[in-house]
Design a protein around this nucleic acid. Sequence first.
RNA 1: GGUCCCUUCGUCUAAUGGUUAGGACUCAGCCCUUUCACGGCUGCAAUAGGGGUUCGAAUCCCCUAGGGAUCACCA
Length: 470
Amino acid sequence: MPNILFNLLKGSNLNVVTRFAPSPTGHLHIGGARTAIFNYLFAKKHSGKYLVRIEDTDKNRSSEEAIKAIHKGLNWLNVNSEHDVIYQSQNFNSHIKVAHELLEKGHAYKCYLNSDELEKLRKKSRENGIPIKSPWRNKKELYDNKNREFVIRLKMPSDGTTTIDDIVQGKVTVKNEILDDMVILRSDNTPTYMLSSVVDDNDMRITHVIRGDDHFNNAFRQIQIIKFLNWNIPYYAHIPLIHGTDGAKLSKRHGATSLFDYHDLGYTSDAMFSYLLQLGWTAKNYEVFCIDKAAKLFALENVSKSPAKFDIKKLNNINAKNLKSMKTSDIYKLVIDRFKLSLNNEEQKRFKSLLPELLKRVQVYTDLEFEFDWLFQKNFFCKDKNYQLILQKNNLMLKEIGSQLKACEWSVDNIKHILNQYIQDKSLTFKDIGPILRMALTGKTNSPDLISIIYELGCTITVNRLNYKY
RNA sequence: GGUCCCUUCGUCUAAUGGUUAGGACUCAGCCCUUUCACGGCUGCAAUAGGGGUUCGAAUCCCCUAGGGAUCACCA
């Protein structure tokens, strides 16, 4: 197929509508987050609509907290929908109607199997490698079944094949005989996901179903409903799952799987977005770090078919780059909010000035916390016992430098001059005084440039710290 | 086990029949330097295996091996 035609078919001439459809049974998983990103980007790329639908057909497992958590995650990632959120449970009536329509048209049947019978059938099916088809498929409804519980099962076609031309996975064909007569309406008269999802997609006029590869097998089953009803078949794009370092589907034991955990750990939304996007998608070796650019370049055809392993080191690197590229005022706000810092004017100025240098030294901004004591503590002194001994020994030197600094007019140049003059007078090198000054001022052996630290700390604080009696 | 999918440096990937198989992350070394970083440079490192097709294969075909997904009145 020529590329241009292919691209037309895959979206550029349609009024593209995509949806992210999480089930509210827990936090927003990072795999789900990536699915949301792909849906969002594809819609943006084609100037289409991106919708969010909460799949709460299983009331026992759904919760309000989970719904909130999902929105919190989507908002943080900036991939929430501009349109109203759809709750699947609110469309139950329409789903039930479709189930009965299928029943009337002979595409579905009532199955009166009890749980024991079903369990036996399931076991037998598994052993023989054949799909579940209830004996009720071919039975006429009996009079004495009127009061018995039943489910409605779809009557799958038993011969022929079904082909899906998946945008990511390619053309895949399966024999219809492997399709099971899945339940579409439960015995309590509630629809299953298999039904609801298809009906809602149709009602919402979804053109592209972009979801995790774990749904690929479902597509062959769901498409039968669409065919029975003569609805439009959407384009499918089943994106590969994210794996842990051992190659298995990402789960708790691999570390944090909740998107928002990464917020808590100090990753930025942009870094997370960028990393998740690059996990399985590439714009021809061109590293994309912003959403707008990604929206212009995104194409489902470039999504990798094979699963990608989640690599925290790469995430760290992207996050570190992102921190360095952020506007100081933005990251400043982030840190102040996170740690609920209340700083006076002088401290604010000090923090903002040193922030770019401090950020070069962390991969997640929460690590900035380790700098707070020497930056803001009123009566700061070096806590390390070994360093204290060194400071005791060099008491005189610190005092001398302190008194010279006290006397000078406070400027970067003057501070530099005083220190240089001091080492010259004593025939020392900067290495002789640098580490000691650093210990006295920060309590550590590494920090940003000493001159700027002294300058930003100001005369009073610097001199106090240099004069501290260890 | 049935069905389906996948397999290029340790990781994410580029190369859609002709490249010394490229980049990024990690790691190592060097440079810069008042420390730690940042930055710059260099290096280590891959086409799962076996058969075909072809003048020529990472690329097309077949087999094998490995990995994954799924098989609910969950979604």
